[in-house]
Amino acid sequence: MYADFDLLIPEGLNQALGMIAKSKADTDIAPLGGGTNLVVEMRARGKAAATLLSVGQIADLRGIEIADGRVTMGAATTVSDILRHPRMPDVGSALFESAGVFAGQMVRNTATVAGNICCGSPAADLVPPLLALGASVTLQSQRGERTVPLDKYFTGYKTSVRKPDELLTAISWPVPAGKSASRFYKLGRRKGDAITMVGVSVFIEMAGGVCTTVRIALGAVGPCVMRAGKAEAVLLGKAPTAELIEKAASVAEGECAPIDDIRASGAYRKQQVQVLVRRLLNQTIESLS
């Protein structure tokens, strides 16, 4: 036995919200999605929350809907569900790219979107594309429901605005409109099943030759996945010339503060942020012209 815990398996969302309502901390009752993060972590640490609340099997929480100009994914939607959705390359191309380089097949078949966000890892691969697409998350408890922009969700390393009695129930973003495109690139030590050293995602919308929306998100180069707001400002409202793209890339490098770890040094990560931001901006803008 690697860790001791009880496990609750609610049939629907209301029952789940009732079960977690009494939780005062994640050490009381912790949600369980696919378990691809939590089971590994419990085994490594030999300890767990007193009770896990399984939400992966709740049918209402799984699926991708495109309606009223928004794409909405239930919390228990898996990485494979993203890859297998026929419209994902159009309505979330960066997210589709990220799902394609995520873990291996068995983990993709199990890992949920909410689990990827809520594990709080700065290397979580779905988060940079979701930030670039301008996603919001829905948090629900018996006290009610609230929607939080994803760029306001994380407060630090593995910390967030989620309260212990809340479940993340949905993630949504506007269907990309007009002339727009998004990209994601994962720099890992191998092509398959690698943990990200640097993840970059960009979203650009253009009108009349200038950038009307610019979002640049960086993974694994700070305590949580972050937007490079200053780099975005370099291009916003401007025609994206080679000089401005170069400038945005070096501003993005200056905005991040990566650490050294077993996968890469901080200095290497910083340099790669510049390379990848420049490359993805060029590719995205080229695809729009």
Partner: peptide, 28 residues
């Protein structure tokens, strides 16, 4: 036993999962 190697893969309703990461009670 941490999802890296795939030796423990089984099909659940025809879809492969790592059985080392799946809690038996969630199989239903």
């Amino acid at each position: 036993e941490k999802g890296d190697c795939g030796a423990c893969a089984v099909l659940l309703d025809g879809m492969a999962v790592d059985s080392c990461l799946t809690l038996t009670h969630t199989v239903g």
